[in-house]
């Protein structure tokens, strides 16, 4: 929340016309620019003869999906889930375990990953949402770690060490995804689709209720809403979206391990959302790009690259509470 004096002298909203925030339009333009630039990555990789670039950016897009899904509950519901990486893991393990048994179709992988994520989100969310604040963080962390240790103990599927895939998921019997650039565009397509979905949800009736529970749960009850059911629904949607990123992550890495689900990963997702800008959707995407590029770049100089990341995070939080997205909005003269 920026506390910049807001538009007391703004154009008098004519009561007849419902408010349409022009901000949203330019956010759409920013999204278009970011996704458009991303779409050029395989081309650049081709021209610069650096195929690794496409693979690296596929990974970035995967985490952008995960961060986007986290922002849905963190930014719009003020639900700080510290176990979000578990859902990424469910998607990844859906690919690994099913492929091991000869089921390689990506749609089956997606269905299984989403299914497990939804069940886990309903069960753990129903319990975690009875608590607030720090307790919610701790409970989601505990459930996340339970999922982590469950997969660590699955020795048939690699246990602690993880498991390599024999190949990527197939699409209706074809090995389309074997091409790095196809996987890249599929991932980008998923990101854009889920971004549009999330944008629709936060502006819908449901989204407005969710944002209301973030602002003041007591007030919401006083006008007749029961916050729990809306928060739980959002928690489930976010979990399902994150599991999709897991399916794609397994395909990108062709390797799955419990490390995907560790609390470090959950923390990293939170960092991405905060760095990019809480409650902006696009912020999660930007945060994933920045964090992973910083990791790539800083780790060349030092193994202690996280210190550099920490410094950047501190600076952003101090000078732009709304993250990088907020910084851009201010630079472009909006939000004044």
């Amino acid at each position: 929340m920026s506390d910049s004096p807001a538009p007391t002298t703004a154009p008098p909203a004519s009561p007849a016309a419902p408010l349409r925030r022009p901000r949203l339009f330019s956010r759409g333009a920013a999204a278009l620019a970011i996704f458009g630039l991303m779409a050029l990555v395989p081309l650049v990789a081709h021209l610069s003869d650096d195929p690794f670039l496409t693979v690296a950016f596929t990974r970035i897009l995967v985490f952008a999906i995960a961060a986007l899904s986290l922002d849905l509950i963190l930014g719009y519901g003020a639900l700080v889930s510290f176990g979000h990486a578990a859902y990424v893991g469910f998607g990844a393990y859906a690919v690994a375990i099913l492929s091991r048994h000869g089921i390689t179709d990506i749609f089956v992988h997606l269905a299984a990953g989403i299914g497990v994520a939804v069940i886990f989100a309903v069960l753990t969310g129903a319990i975690a949402l009875r608590t607030r604040g720090v307790y919610f963080i701790m409970i989601t962390l505990a459930f996340g770690q339970m999922a982590y240790f469950f997969f660590t103990s699955l020795s048939a599927y690699g246990g602690d060490d993880g498991i390599s895939l024999r190949g990527r998921s197939t699409v209706l019997g074809t090995d389309l995804l074997a091409h790095n650039s196809v996987l890249f565009y599929v991932t980008l397509g998923a990101l854009v689709g889920l971004y549009l979905l999330a944008a629709a949800v936060v502006n819908s009736r449901f989204g407005r209720v969710l944002a209301g529970t973030r602002e003041d749960a007591l007030r919401m009850q006083a006008i007749g809403f029961r916050p729990f059911r809306y928060q739980l629904a959002a928690f489930v949607i976010a979990g399902a979206m994150a599991s999709i990123s897991g399916v794609l992550l397994a395909n990108q890495a062709e390797f799955v391990s419990p490390a995907y689900m560790s609390w470090h990963r959950s923390g990293e997702l939170i960092v991405m959302v905060i760095l990019g800008g809480i409650g902006t959707l696009l912020g999660g995407v930007v945060g994933a790009v920045v964090v992973l590029l910083l990791e790539e770049w800083l780790s060349v100089f030092t193994t202690h690259w996280r210190m550099g990341l920490g410094l950047v995070l501190i600076l952003v939080v101090l000078f732009s509470p709304k993250g990088i997205a907020g910084l851009f909005e201010r630079l472009l003269g909006r939000g004044k």
Binding site: P18, N203, R205, R208, A211, G212, R219
Partner: peptide, 30 residues
């Protein structure tokens, strides 16, 4: 009140609570 919401949104949300389902995920509420 919901401080981050506009005045209209604050009141419209109360109207929404008794007019139709709020489990609608599409369509701009605004």
């Amino acid at each position: 009140i919901l401080h981050g919401f506009t005045v209209l949104q604050n009141v419209a949300l109360a109207v929404q609570a008794r007019k139709g389902s709020s489990f609608r995920f599409f369509g701009r509420a605004d």
